[in-house]
Design a protein around this nucleic acid. Structure first.
Lengths: 212, 212
DNA sequence: CGCATATACGGAGGCATCCTCCGTTTTACA
DNA sequence: TGTAAAACGGAGGATGCCTCCGTATATGCG
């Protein structure tokens, strides 16, 4: 097994793999805490490696953002695929969208960094869009095939709406608000909107009080 | 008129007012072009003032973001108030939401900066939320009073949905996508969802082609 | 097992930007 | 027009970005 690709690619050194992993962990932690402007030297210190090591693995700040970003995206994609087992297609969709809110909720600082990198790297943006779109596409297609969701809204559209809404992670209680807005959006998606609203069908938080 | 507050507050110096204005203009231009990471010294140069002057008016980078942000918010608020004359309440709402998309569209780089500051300053965020919420509240209230919009969604909710969606300014064609999603959202808001969708009622762009 | 070499490590250092401090200049008011 | 308060602007110390290269170490072969 050692020389499977002997001569072509050398097996990567153990310390390199370990350090790369350490830096990624540290980056996630430091960015989550200090926001995307955090010093890269702080990341290196936190990872217990030299600044040179950090820069060899991730030549630019954006490259580091990217690496973390890719991880998050893959996790979300996997989750969507698992949800294909759910019985009710619309509920599966709702479930995934709501799960995303939880996902983002655990990494406040990161979200800003991810937003920045998504804005900066077309290639990465294309990748994540493709990955997530395909993942959510299955959920959506099932609901459309069942005649429960209008067919003129694409998976990209739903994805955009979700990401946009999730970006609103600014104040206490944002989660319940976003969940409610997602339900409204799902109502808008329905082919024949039922009289009962999504909020009624699944009260996110009982008797959530509103300002007006 | 000169000594209205004589002894209490001195009239601010003309050059101070002028320079503050210059810096704000320069900041808007430089951030719009170069993104939120642009050098403050570049802003000062562009404004034709010394770096010290910039820092006296805006002690931190965030303070400068804030000042620009406030302006934008006020402009949006004013726009909403003007729209109270519109005949159809739902259309007035739609009009304002769509106008926002145009507004954001002209300042790509700024949007990232605004997002950052909104994330950082609770006070400013509260102010802008209050300003815009009250502005949009009138539009919404009219539509609810007319029985056209469900009453369990607050002005804050609509605002969040809008800002979230508008944050998706990442690729060519994002505007038409966002406009379409806003229409879906408005459909979700309706008390008795009509069979005709918003897209049918007012085609944003005739025969907009979709990926799938 | 031990050596040779490719590979990775780490931090010194050059450069850019941040931000403060203070001597100089300008303005408002009497 | 005089004067004191206020603003100007840039020099300079501090910090962070990123490169470069001498040193250390893992891998694979003899």
């Amino acid at each position: 097994m050692a020389s499977q690709f002997a001569g072509l690619v050398r097996k990567p050194r153990a310390d390199a793999v370990r350090n790369r992993e350490r830096v990624l962990e540290a980056a996630k932690a430091v960015f989550s805490a200090g926001g995307p402007e955090a010093s890269l030297e702080a990341v290196a210190r936190h990872a217990g490696v030299g600044i040179g090591t950090l820069y060899r693995h991730f030549p630019t700040r954006e490259a580091l953002y990217e690496a973390v970003y890719r991880r998050e995206v893959d996790q979300l994609g996997d989750l969507a695929e698992q949800l294909n087992d759910e019985a009710d297609p619309v509920e599966a969709l709702r479930h995934w969208l709501h799960a995303n809110v939880q996902f983002v909720a655990t990494k406040k600082g990161m979200a800003a960094a991810l937003a920045l990198v998504a804005h900066g790297s077309p290639e990465l943006h294309a990748y994540s869009l493709e990955r997530l779109t395909r993942a959510i596409g299955a959920l959506l297609a099932r609901a459309v095939a069942a005649g429960e969701i209008r067919a003129d809204i694409s998976a990209e559209d739903v994805l955009r709406a979700l990401i946009g809404l999730c970006y609103m992670h600014d104040q206490a209680g944002w989660q319940s608000t976003v969940l409610r807005l997602l339900d409204v959006f799902i109502d808008g998606l329905r082919v024949q909107p039922a009289k009962a609203t999504a909020a009624k069908r699944k009260p996110v938080k009982k008797a959530l009080k509103r300002k007006r």
